[in-house]
Structures are given as C-alpha cells and as structure tokens.
Amino acid sequence: MAEQEQRRPTRGEKESAEPVDVGPAQSVSRGSERLKGELDDLLDEIDEVLESNAEEFVKSYIQKGGE
C-alpha cells in the first residue's frame, strides 16, 4: 500500500468546504469530481451487461438462508 503524508482533520475542520486529502492517491477526487463522460461510459457498460430480463432475474434469485 502506498504511504502518503496526510493532514489530520480535526472536528472543527470537518465543517469546511475544503475536501480533506485522503489516503492513497487512487482514491483522491472521485465521485462529484468525476467527469460526466466517465459516468456516461460506465452507464453505457451497465446498460450492456445488466441482465436483459430484469424481472425474471430478480424473481428467480432465491437463496436458502445460511449460517
């Protein structure tokens, strides 16, 4: 795992609008910073692979309780 210097947020700072720099580099600035195009591509892929008969798929997914 990548080591990275990180500023420790205190309770007071958490209210600020500045995003806290978190953890390894891969996780920085995802989500709302994500380009709209990236989400569109992702949804294109989901439209492609999502079970075509959603109704039947969901209905037939039945498991026995476990543990």
Binding site: K14, P19, V22, Q26, S27, S29, S32
Partner: peptide, 21 residues
Amino acid sequence: IRRWEAVLASLESRPTDLVGV
C-alpha cells in the same frame, strides 16, 4: 487509523468521494 479517519471525514464532507472505497 489513517483510513478510518479519512473515510469518516469524507462521509461528513462528500460521501461520493468514497465511490470505489
């Protein structure tokens, strides 16, 4: 500890930063 802190901070400020986390 560091990830715990970072995740709690994101949950309060901008949860969508935790997509993939």
